[in-house]
Each structure stands twice: as structure tokens, then as C-alpha cells.
Amino acid sequence: MRNYLAIVERELKSYFSSPIAYVVIGLFLLLSGVFFYLIISNFVQMCMRADMQAQYYRMAPPKLNVNLMAIRPILHNMSLFALFFLPLVTMRLYSDEKRSGTIELLSTSPLTNFQSIFGKFTAGGLLFLIMLASTFIYIILLFIYGNPELGPVLTGYLGLFLLGLSYISFGVFFSTLTDNQIVAAISTVTFILIFWAIGWVSGFVSPAVGKVLSNFSLIEHFDDFAKGVLDTKHIIFYLSFITMGLFLSFVSIESSRWRGR
């Protein structure tokens, strides 16, 4: 446990003592902010148009759902930004250790590979948590000027967090494969994008295969969270995905020890 905490602490410190954390958090906030502005402006415009129409037809103004029409697209957008940001967070976790030779320190110290993998994964997860928490400012604005439901916001964020952890666990895995950070990042993005889009294939194949494939899709499991539905099936999917990534990292590190690279 102490070893694990030591790794988490070191990785977090190293994120924050280099520009990585500030750049990633800052740009993530900026990008989310821009899209927040666009989506909210669009939503406000739609509300006004609906109001005008209602007046024209002399009807009661319709109630437009801010959760459905604004927060959900915002969360979806953030899940896409995370896809490009998180590999940049995870790419150095092992690649850097391999390149600089510090991996020799880790693997000759009395700490297990699992402790170090899980420590690095946790550090990435915490950084993502900070990224997510900072975007809460936007949601708070909505609560000040509107009356969204809190439930779907929270489940949405939970889903986003689980989705992000899935990216991170595979980010760790690809980072164990190479000592080149760019290679690690680009492979992670590619891999996740494939699992992101795999559901779309279902339209072109037989229904049975399609159903299986769309169940593998990272983003389709996210939909229910964004709608405010908390289904254990989706939670279990993400947890298995995360476990898979961590397990593969473990195998990769053990095998590179045997291969001696």
C-alpha cells in the first residue's frame, strides 16, 4: 500500500512539476468552454425561437429540457476531448521510465509490478478527475441561471469518469510497449477510436454480430449515463475494460522482463 501511494504521489508531483498538468487541464477547460458556449448559445436561441412560435400560435411556451438539449451534448463533447487529451497524459507513464532507465529502479525495488501499474493508473485517473471537476464551473453556471436536474448531471459525470479511466488503462498499456511517447500516444488514440466507432459497424453486418459489436462500443455504454440512467451493465462493461487494460500492462511488463528489453 505504501509503495502504491509512493508511486501515485510521485506521478502526480511529476505531472504538476512539469507543464503537462497545467497545459492539459487548461486546454481541456478552454475547449470544453468553447463548446459549452456554442451549445448553450444554440440552446438559448432555440428556446427563444420556440417562445416566439408559441406566441405566434397563441400557445403556452414549450418547456425545453436543458439536461437533454445542453448538458448531454456537452458531456458527449467532453468524452471526445478526453479521447485526445488522456493519451497525452498516459503516454509518458512507462515510456519515459524505459527511455531514461528509471524502470531499472522500479523493477529492482521491493514493489510489485501491479503496485506500480495501479499507482500510475491512479495518478492518471486523479489528473482526469481534476480535469472533470474543473469543468463543473460550467455546470454550476447552468444551475445559477437555469434549473437543470442534478441526477443526470452526476450520472453523466460518473460515466465520463469511467470512460476516461478506460482510456487511461489502455494508455498505460500502450505506454508499456514502447520507449517512445509519441508512439504510445498515437497507438492509444487509434485503439480507443476503433473501440469508439465499432458500434457503427453494426448497421452493415448481420443483426447478431451487430449487437455483439455495439456492446463493445465504448461510447454506446456512455449514452445511458448521459441520459441519467445508472445501469450496472454499463458500469461492469467499463470496469472490465479497465481491468483488461491493466492486465495487459501487467503481462507486457512481465514479458518485457523475460525478453530483456
Binding site: 509512493a6 532507465g101 528509471t102 524502470i103 529502479l105 522500479l106 525495488s109
Partner: peptide
């Protein structure tokens, strides 16, 4: 163990680095 290339985290301060090593040892 001191490998041929000392396994140093370049961005850390000497004392923090040694504290970290002490912890994982």
C-alpha cells in the same frame, strides 16, 4: 543497485527523489 545510467527522475529535486526511493525500498 546503480545501473550504468543512474536511474534518476530528472524533474525531481534530489531530496524528493531520495525520499521516493526510500519509500519504495
Amino acid at each position: 543497485y546503480l545501473p550504468e545510467n543512474p536511474p534518476l527522475y530528472q524533474e525531481m529535486r534530489v531530496r524528493d527523489y531520495l525520499n521516493f526511493v526510500a519509500k519504495i525500498k
